[in-house]
Amino acid sequence: MIELFNVSVQENKRLILNQVSLRINKGEFVYLIGKTGAGKTTLLRLIYLDLYPSQGNIIVENYSSATIKRRQIPYLRRKVGVVFQDFKLLPDRNVYENVAFALRVIGASRREIKSRVLSVLTQVGLNHKRYHLPHTLSGGEKQRVAIARALVNEPFILLADEPTGNLDPEASRDILELLEDINRSGTAVCMATHNYELIKLIPHRTILLDNGEIRREFSPAEVQQLKVIE
């Protein structure tokens, strides 16, 4: 469960988020939409505490941004998976190692690593490419590796910041379907995007951010009415 109470973020005297309150429930799928610079990325960064709010408070499971200690942040991050538009894979390690990395750095045992990595690679459909290096993969496949790495710690929520931003329409649809699968198996998903056509394919609760504020919330049924505002 994630909850934001009147959260504002100010950077260099510019207000990036203004009094945002939001609740994401367990197992929910939420889209964050809005123009570039509307505050989508900032909102996501707040959730994995890459950024502290200038005002307000954020609750992520048992942690609160107001009271969390710096050394506790890694433990929060293990419960929150994050993927990005640019994948952020390690170019000199193969698919398996990229995913295993997330477990190695938290000190998992070798046996545990092996079974969990193979299972999550099967889930994203990349088991057969586990020895490939990232540069030999397509964009869609790279994003699958990133998703596998985000999932391998079994987080309760997956944050996706423009995960289809670098992908062609077909690959984008595949990634979205994968996220939907992941959500169905119980992991909450919060995806920032400005691809409105895409979210109409699998509509969910959608939050429109504009100029650092929540402008409107759409129910899944209302999503179809969304028009491109950019």
Binding site: Y48, P74, L76, R77, R78, F101, A102, V105, I106, R149
Partner: peptide
Amino acid sequence: EIMQLVGATN
């Protein structure tokens, strides 16, 4: 950055 992201300790 990735280490920080996946929750490696300092």
